[in-house]
Design a protein around this nucleic acid. Structure first.
Lengths: 228, 228
DNA sequence: GCAAAAGTGTTGGTATTACACCCATGC
DNA sequence: GCATGGGTGTAATACCAACACTTTTGC
């Protein structure tokens, strides 16, 4: 047992945002200190001595980007020596989902800038953050096949096509509209409202749906089989 | 960013062993230092400054128990303040599978004893190790439903019933023999040999099977749908 | 009337479940 | 011959994949 360990513990967050116009995006900050000064990176930082890991991620996110998020899931811990050129740092990573336009982004002192990047147009990232981001995306893709996803990402009421687009954007492949709807309806985590979509350009307006939160969280716990 | 962080980084391992007589067991060590002196605990310890997390778990396992294991998967990182009464320690946990009788257990200097415990008859564990172990067991259960499991746990050649018993032991529920076999055969990760089981008491001897390693690892990568 | 999006059913194939009897062996 | 475990098939049902036309709206 090494007597004097010299390892730092950090947390990093992969925050996915979704809008139907923009598709899936990720929240990044531009570093204004070396190493990787001026590179884009995942928000994150060192864990305080008296806070839990979850508290640390939430604090860092708030500080660095202005984003408040109440649900983050642990992804993986990265710890290869050399992943940070300064010291040995192991990073415990989390991922979460938000509606991007629910926040006004504000860069903090240790970040020069904050922005959402479309998942398809990412810049070069600092450290091993590219790898982390990719792992988070993979995890999200497989998560949404055994748990309902969308509650955190869609408006309270939304036309059915929004959920469909969300699934297609995250999975990055087409889905049969009719089969998807049958399946979702059968699970019963959606409720149809009597309202119709506001007119948005062309096409027939759809009925609005909302999540049945009780069923949604129940199915999230027990798991579903969402083969698409 | 806290300037002087005072957190230690440890790794802990949940090593599952399986034999058809004993069922599913876990490898534990008896601590001979405080805190929790004389309690049973998961093998593990602090990560060295220049080793990767995987190297650290393997080293600790070797040192504390004599067990060599070449495949461990990361489980989760536990980091609540107070989980270790001495210092703040975050622990990155791993789990793995071995044939228990492939090793001679040897307790090391910082452990008073090492032993396999049946999953159904666990002692009180130190720290939050009970919680870790339970998470590992859950993970293993769900893993075996979307990936083939058994290669690391069974002999090179084995009667079909061994695989069946393994699945029943880990999942802790009965499985229909005929349907299970149909499903496994269809996936094709087993090869039937021409040999018959050595006689072992009563009953008709079964044919021996072995894993088709290529298909096995391929299915492990791509995932299967192993509803039982 | 035409472009855009929403709504909706059927069918054939496949997969899953439930279930029971005979066979080879040791004692 | 009996106890033990191995080996195997079928029928009913549920689920899934594939697929196209009609409706409502704005312009």
């Amino acid at each position: 047992m090494p007597a004097n360990q010299n390892i730092k513990v950090a947390v990093d967050a992969v925050v996915f945002g979704y809008t139907s116009k923009e598709g899936l995006s990720v929240l990044l900050i531009k570093r204004n200190i070396d190493p990787f000064k001026n590179s884009w990176a995942l928000p994150g930082g060192l864990v305080g001595d008296d806070e839990s890991l979850e508290e640390a991620v939430q604090r860092e996110l708030k500080e660095e980007t202005g984003v408040n998020i109440n649900y983050l899931e642990q992804l993986y811990s990265f710890g290869k020596p050399g992943r940070d050129p300064r010291n040995r740092v192991i990073s415990i990573t989390y991922y979460g989902l938000v509606k991007p336009d629910a926040f006004e982004l504000q860069a903090a002192t240790d970040a020069a800038d904050v922005a959402w990047f479309k998942i398809k147009k990412l810049p070069q990232l600092a450290f091993d953050h590219q790898e982390i981001l990719q792992a988070a995306h993979e995890r999200l893709k497989s998560k949404m096949l055994y748990q309902p996803v969308g509650f955190e990402l869609l408006e309270e009421k939304f036309p059915f096509s929004e959920l469909e687009k969300l699934y297609m954007a995250v999975l990055d492949r087409p889905i049969d509209r009719r089969n998807f709807k049958k399946k979702v309806i059968k699970f019963g985590f959606l409720e149809e409202t009597t309202e119709k979509q506001e007119l948005s350009g062309a096409g027939r307006p759809g009925n609005l749906f909302r999540f049945n939160q009780q069923k949604y969280f129940q199915l999230q716990k027990q798991g579903i089989n969402f083969e698409l």
